[in-house]
Design a protein around this nucleic acid. Structure first.
Lengths: 215, 215
DNA sequence: TTCCACCCCCTACTTTCGTCTTAGGCTCAG
DNA sequence: CTGAGCCTAAGACGAAAGTAGGGGGTGGAA
């Protein structure tokens, strides 16, 4: 049985959710709460698997509540509910540890499926929100990571090993110890790498390695 | 009617998809292709709304094909299919313009729904992939930037100027020229900064500055 | 086999870094 | 006024970093 905590300030929404979940058969309402503070204390009292929570509520809002729930010993999976697909809240909610984000007009069947999905350890977002997430993701993860990787590709494997160590802020002596080679060899690799990359010092190379995300 | 293009090198997969989509009623198979190159030329010939495409294929793979499809005059919505949920491909596919990413064991009903969803301009990811995307999103949109900033906050303004220059890969002499101060002063700032930050060399500081977004 | 690229290591040398010490001028709070 | 902190700077010095050139060994390609 999946133990669900319902959190919403409107009684009608709560009873609606209660009805929907009752039809699932494999779920039980562990508790209900009217705002974030109540939700946190309810989750502390009753073991809960999944939390269905409104974003906006009087008192403690859903975002801060999600963050607090995430810090509990056995954090429940949090699905945020919202009326409109408000961009900013999505990102904040995901950072707060939410694993689901649905619109309130989601069909009952999908809602039930979402609860099961997150209970399984996966994530479920409304399609329109997924689209937003993907586009902002594409902006944030630009392909210059690939540029950087392409530039590093001209190095040999050992040279890359050394440069990654350099990018971790290690001295030549430390790198020598870590990679089991003489410091003179490290210097040789660094020097060769720098000239291959057209750089003059190790800081520039370190930055490149970081841009390639090979931290 | 949603016009669908099926792309997979295995005949069995293609016919399976064909059967599933036929049941939907509101879809028509515009064409089929065995690899990325065929897919692109097929999409050029027949107007297509949605492309269902395998990630791995002999010849041109799904990723590069997705990128090419994305550059067409009327780019179709691309849903990538895969057997395993391979992390790297997801990110690459999304950057290539894909708006869907499903596992091949997705139930027929969900597959049909996914096609409708992307045809509507939204995105659809498999729950396990959504989870991955969210966690990497949370990493990429970090509050670590704030950590790094907090650490850099203990530096004075001038010291920060110098460290930002360091993080750009400049030598002390170059920094001196750029900031109009003696090289000995640059060294003084660098040394003071490093000791304040508890670091031993400029590479580590450069990384911190980068983590703080400042360049 | 020969050639070539990579890997490892060395010496020797130059340049750059980083630390330390000292110190003048500045501003601001007490 | 005085001390504290910042910015500036110099000189000196050891420790790294980076360059140049050489010498081996391996293994794959020609």
């Amino acid at each position: 049985m999946i133990r669900v905590l319902i959190v919403d300030d409107e009684m009608l929404v709560r009873s609606g959710l209660r009805l929907i979940l009752a039809e699932a058969g494999d779920m039980v309402i562990a508790a209900e709460a009217r705002d974030g503070a109540e939700a946190v204390s309810a989750a502390r009292l009753h073991p809960v698997d999944v939390v269905l929570m409104d974003v906006r509520m009087p008192g403690m809002d859903g975002l801060t509540a999600a963050a607090k729930l995430h810090d509990l010993p056995h954090p429940p999976k949090v699905i945020m509910l919202t009326t409109f697909d408000e961009d900013e809240y999505v990102q904040a909610a995901l950072r707060a540890g939410a694993v689901g984000f649905l619109l309130k007009d989601t069909p009952p069947r999908d809602l039930i499926e979402a609860v099961r999905t997150v209970a399984d350890g996966n994530a479920m977002l409304a399609p329109s929100i997924t689209r937003r997430l993907i586009s902002s993701f594409a902006e944030i993860t630009p392909s210059h990571a690939n540029d950087a990787r392409a530039r590093l590709a001209i190095l040999t494997e050992r040279e890359r090993d050394v440069m990654v160590a350099v990018a971790n802020g290690m001295s030549n002596a430390e790198i020598a110890r870590k990679l089991a080679m003489a410091e003179s060899t490290v210097r040789a690799h660094v020097s060769k790498s720098l000239s291959k990359l057209g750089m003059t010092n190790r800081v520039q190379a370190a930055i490149l390695v970081h841009d390639a995300h090979l931290v």
